[in-house]
């Protein structure tokens, strides 16, 4: 068993790109479901960072953090999708621009 020669830096770059891709999705897509998917992307980017750092420091705590992130993501997806269903039922749309009840 040996550590791969790929630098941690590369993983971090990948994570950063992934994160920003997700962020872009959140910021420009109007479909609530796609926004949720983008959020999942961002969470995974965070996971990747945790794991890269864990390998760098040989500290398995990072894995646990990733585990918890996955759990939180699962919870978030469940609730979020339930809200999407509820909103859709009430308003017939999942377009985020059409949901503005909190406007001044």
């Amino acid at each position: 068993m040996q550590i791969s020669p790929v630098d941690t830096q590369n993983y971090l770059l990948l994570a950063a790109t992934l994160f920003c891709t997700g962020m872009l999705g959140v910021l420009v897509r109007r479909n609530a479901l796609v926004v949720f998917m983008s959020i999942e992307l961002m969470l995974n980017a965070a996971n990747l960072t945790f794991l890269a750092a864990a390998r760098e420091r040989l500290d398995a705590t990072g894995h646990l953090a990733a585990l918890f992130v996955i759990a939180v993501a699962a919870a978030e997806a469940a609730i979020g999708l339930a809200i999407v269903i509820a909103v859709f039922r009430n308003r017939g749309t999942v377009n985020v621009e059409d949901i503005r009840t909190m406007k001044y």
Binding site: L27, V96, I99, R100, K103, Y104
Partner: peptide, 14 residues
């Protein structure tokens, strides 16, 4: 300042 509250989630995210 309340006119900043557009109610649009994406605006807040931006």
């Amino acid at each position: 300042l309340r006119y900043l509250q557009t109610g649009d989630v994406q605006a807040y995210a931006a």
